[in-house]
Amino acid sequence: MTAVLEVKDLQVAFGGVKAVDGLSFSAHEREIIAVIGPNGAGKTSAFNCITGFYRPTSGSVRIKGLETTGKRPADIAAVGVTRTFQNLRLFPDLTVLDNVRAGMHLYGGQNWADAILHTPRFKRSEAMYTDEANYWLDFVGFEGARGVPVRNLSYGQQKRVEIARALARKAELLLLDEPAAGLNYSEKQQLLVLCGRIRDLGTSIVLIEHDMGLVMELSERIIVMNFGREIAVGTPAEVKANPAVIEAYLGKDDEGAQSNGDA
């Protein structure tokens, strides 16, 4: 298996605060990896480094074997990464379909002259954008109006649109930042199934998640972070039994903590 994502000794510091302090991990094809850890552990900072929103202080990120450290986000997206954000980052005044079309920007298929002249190429390209946007909305199980501004939708629907937008990019690596936050039980179950289907497309998923039930069921490997460092890595069962993890989550006085490992 080839590594889709390789993070080596990644460090980010803001002033004196080391948000990420020597993180290394890799993700392989069709793998689902979860990054967990207490709030402030540096999970989202690590995501932002991988996607280029933060410039790492040191260390390297390779995506599909290409060095992407320090490149700008748009270039990294072009290499083959797509992501969702911790707090929804949709385009609120634009329609659901337009939001998903954003993910397809890199497909091209038309230029400004085509747009002004309405050439056949432009019409083909627009039809393709619309069809694919609908396809991805179907794929994530989005039900509801698609021609309305996305701000009119419920939170759960918006989360789906954001995933559809990320999928429309058709990248080999998908980073999900807390995809289950704010979802109810049945929505979480649907998310579980959806992640499996995304993996079946040939996409690797790295997700940050606080819902341990979801993480344990979904991921093949779990990386546990605390204070910017990786404190444990392994299968769900291994991580569950790891004393360092239990300590990070429950504190040091570990009388009976073992039994609560899956918190």
Binding site: F53, A77, R83, F85, G103, Q110, A115
Partner: peptide, 26 residues
């Protein structure tokens, strides 16, 4: 017509949320 094209949408994406647009490869 420019407003209703790929470029026009990219402009709107930038207007609405620059970071999210950048993450989509714009």
């Amino acid at each position: 017509r420019l407003g209703k094209s790929r470029l026009g949408r990219a402009w709107r994406f930038v207007r609405e949320d620059e970071d999210a647009a950048e993450a989509m490869g714009i």
